[in-house]
Design a binder for these strands. Structure first.
Ligand SMILES: Nc1ncnc2c1ncn2[C@@H]1O[C@H](COP(=O)(O)OP(=O)(O)OP(=O)(O)O)[C@@H](O)[C@H]1O
Length: 675
DNA sequence: GGCATCGATGTTTTT
DNA sequence: CATCGATGCC
């Protein structure tokens, strides 16, 4: 073990060695919360706790990886590997795999993504006879998700909200759940809700997990929702060994059900909790911290904190005005080169943070053009390509022949002649005969209403899937079977036909081969433990390309993805009204304070240098519109910022102001008949 | 039942 | 502007 308690300040030390009962560490950005978590784990292990008995939960994969890496450095790889560092959703998969049968989920379940979810919601609306014109499927999807995050099943929701809208949502929710279960599938929210339900209703399961996880630690607890809190509550109820850390000022997931009160009122849920706060920031310079503190001060309800730092700096924070996002990207890339050269910083010390994934496009172009190595976090990935989803649909079917969404997609690729009507008949027949959809397809000619051509294609397709499905068995080869299936359906030709262009089709097929390579890599990693189902579930949960090295590369990502990370030099870009705060929040009377927290999170990622930029013009939905700087920029103390104007348009704020003033003047003048 | 064209809608943010 | 679903024609 390679860790040293003397590297902690007295408060941190107290938290690390705290023994009896629940512990809450509520502290500001960069005060060493995550460091406490990792050191606490190391300390527990050193004092005899089995590493397997420790569960460290985070909310994002990146945070889990980060935690795991820090742990490796502290206790060595062999030990670190045994500690269960996981996201809540991964933990949910673990519980569902072991105990899902009691809630109607088989071992080899499918996890549907948000696209599939929407497809299913549309189906469910049709089934529940809800007009898709009258109710926006997206909105229903959102409402169902919100209900799930609040711990409600369809019946709970229907009983609780008795007005028409509540009934509409709960009826779709019910039909949607039926569809999911019939497909042996769950959605992301189910990965939390169903495990909670298991823990609540199956005492033997609860006992098992309580015995397994003797110590629980949760990072970024301000982002927990109702269901997550309840899971922790149940798991820790007996041992009382729970340590949660977080910062109310960094709560940025309210839109997916996170409740700040989970952390602010922690003592209500764990009455015997000890609370420790940390006030020294070890990350940022005084200038950056002063700026961040000044901004977050504008939020109404928050726990006041007095964060301070010893790192004095007199570098002002540039607030740079650019003309267009293209200019902005070029400027940032040039600046990175310049700073990198003058200060001898490697490129992995730089991060470009933006509000939306769409904003990354211009930066990618500029980075590529200047041949600056970069790495993009999140956004649309390799796995979102149509041909990859097509191929994945085939794999999903191998594992789970009930996966309706996958079947529809896969058949569509395999051949024409099978459309919605055929599908409907198959589903109905499967229902009547209580067989899987794939079984019905195999005997499609026996289903009334399905004609020769369609039946033939169905049967052919079903035989491909079935015969290859038989080749999969526990401990057996995986990638080899998949390769065989892809050859036997002649995916290569199918993709070329579909693309209508040899070259394009071949390109798509090479992406599929890339997918197979990734499966091979997974298989050699897991050896005989490898299973296609696990590979697919892992992919649903985490689409990070593990081959994408971050060393020596600039990081480009959204503010949300940046939480918990730190970089010596941070660029916060696109700081305009309608971006930060986002238009949707402003227009729909949303939570502007959460947007401010997002800005705060961004600023506090920076260790040494923070550079803020905004553009005068920006394209939205094809048309270029004038932008004005984010209101949050006005909240920065003027004496620590330095405004730079690299735009070429007249100040829009001023011209607006002027014209408004002129307007008022004219109106006033007209009253006196003096125009 | 497939296929082309048209039009609405969307870019928050993640698992 | 680009995607995706709905509509209508073959
Ligand atoms: N006692 C300490 N002495 C020196 N450095 C420290 C100390 N505590 C924390 N740090 C350093 O400060 C930085 C921030 O720590 P950490 O990431 O744990 O903070 P955090 O509170 O989790 O931050 P955030 O909430 O903003 O994600 C890290 O680089 C960490 O190594």
């Amino acid at each position: 073990m390679n860790f040293d308690l003397s590297s902690l300040n007295p408060q941190q030390l107290r938290a690390v060695v705290h023994r009896d009962g629940p512990l809450l560490l509520l502290a500001g950005a960069g005060s060493g919360k995550t460091r406490v978590v990792t050191h606490r784990i190391a300390h527990l292990i050193q004092h005899g706790t089995r590493p397997e008995g420790i569960l460290a939960v985070t909310f994002t994969n990146k945070a889990a990886t980060e935690m795991s890496e820090r742990l490796h450095g502290l206790v060595g790889s062999d030990t670190a590997e045994k500690v269960m560092t996981s996201t809540f959703h991964k933990l949910g998969v673990l519980i569902l795999k072991r105990d899902g049968r009691s809630v109607g989920v088989p071992e080899d379940f499918t996890i549907v993504d948000t696209d599939d979810q929407l497809t299913l919601i549309r189906d469910a609306m049709r089934q529940a006879e809800i007009n898709t014109e009258r109710y926006e499927p997206h909105w229903i999807q959102y409402r169902i998700s919100a209900a799930k995050n609040a711990g409600m099943f369809a019946d709970n929701l229907g009983a609780r909200i008795t007005d028409v809208i509540g009934q509409v949502i709960s009826s779709v929710y019910r039909a949607y759940t039926d569809l999911l279960r019939r497909s042996n599938a769950v959605d992301f929210d189910d990965l939390l809700l169903l495990p909670l339900s298991i823990l609540q209703t199956r005492p033997s399961a609860l006992d098992y997990y309580r015995g397994r996880f003797l110590h629980i630690l949760v990072d970024e607890f301000q982002d927990s929702n109702h269901v997550q809190l309840e899971i922790i509550r149940l798991l820790a109820d007996k041992s009382r060994n729970v340590c949660v850390v977080g910062d109310d000022d960094q709560s940025i997931y309210g839109w997916r059900g996170a409740l700040i009160r989970n952390i602010l009122e922690f003592e209500r849920y764990f009455p015997d909790a000890t609370t420790i706060t940390l006030t020294q920031n070890y990350r940022s310079t005084s200038v950056i911290l002063t700026a961040a503190n000044a901004v977050i001060q504008h939020n109404q309800s928050r726990r006041p904190k007095d964060l301070w730092t010893e790192t004095i700096s007199d570098d002002l924070i540039p607030v740079v005005q650019l003309r267009t996002p293209q200019d902005e990207a070029r400027y940032v890339v040039e600046k990175i080169e310049e700073i990198s050269r003058s200060e001898g910083r490697a490129l992995d010390q730089f991060a470009i943070l933006v509000r939306t994934n769409a904003q990354t496009k211009n930066f990618e172009e500029a980075l590529r053009l200047s041949q600056t190595p970069y790495h993009l976090v999140g956004g649309l990935t390799f796995w979102d390509r149509a041909e990859i989803k097509d191929a994945l649909a085939l794999l999903r079917l191998l594992v789970n022949p009930n996966d309706e969404v996958a079947l529809r997609r896969a058949v569509g690729v395999y051949g024409t002649a099978v459309g919605p009507a055929t599908f409907r008949r198959l589903i109905d027949a499967a229902h009547v005969h209580r067989r899987t959809l794939l079984d019905m397809m195999e005997n499609a000619s026996g289903v009334s209403g399905i004609g020769g051509k369609a039946a033939q294609i169905c049967e052919e397709f079903a035989r491909h899937i079935k015969s290859h499905g038989l080749l999969l068995y526990p401990g057996g080869p995986v990638a080899a079977v998949v390769r065989r299936l892809i050859d036997s359906v002649k995916l290569n030709r199918l993709l070329i036909t579909r693309a209508g262009d040899e070259e394009e089709g071949t390109k798509r097929y090479s992406n599929v081969k890339e997918l197979v390579r990734s499966l091979e890599a997974y298989e050699s990693r897991r050896g005989r433990e490898a299973s296609l189902g696990e590979f697919l579930r892992g992919l649903a949960l985490d689409q990070t390309d593990s081959a994408d090295q971050t060393d020596g590369k600039v990081t480009l990502m959204t503010l949300h993805s940046a939480k918990g990370l730190e970089f010596p030099v941070v660029f916060l870009c696109g700081l305009e009204e309608r971006i930060v705060p986002h238009a949707r929040v402003v227009d729909e009377d949303g939570d502007v304070d959460e947007e401010r927290r997002l800005f705060y999170v961004g600023m506090t990622r920076a260790r040494a240098k923070l550079i803020l930029t905004w553009c005068q013009k920006r394209e939205r939905f094809g048309e270029t519109k004038r932008s004005i700087p984010s209101r949050f920029l006005d909240e920065l103390p003027a004496h620590i910022t330095c405004r730079e104007d690299l735009g070429d348009l007249a100040e829009p704020e001023q011209s607006n102001l002027t014209s408004a003033r002129e307007d008022a003047f004219r109106r006033l003048a007209s009253l006196f008949g003096d125009v």
